[in-house]
């Protein structure tokens, strides 16, 4: 079963906090390959991390 955008957004976030399992990474990759919205979301999360590090 293809993961939903909602699940993918959660996995993208958790991927910044813990090592995802093999199945999780696979589900993520399959979804991101066909979903522009989630791909944009993932880039934005990475950007957010970079921005907050530079704060202060």
């Amino acid at each position: 079963m293809m993961p939903t955008c909602k699940e993918v957004s959660r996995l993208v976030s958790q991927g910044l906090d813990r090592q995802l399992g093999f199945i999780e990474r696979l589900r993520l990759r399959v979804h991101l390959a066909i979903c522009d919205g989630c791909t944009n979301f993932k880039k934005q999360m990475e950007f957010l991390r970079k921005a907050v590090k530079q704060l202060g």
Partner: peptide, 9 residues
């Protein structure tokens, strides 16, 4: 489980 508003770049 779909975005109500798709994130755009």
């Amino acid at each position: 489980g779909h975005w109500r508003e798709m994130p755009s770049a």
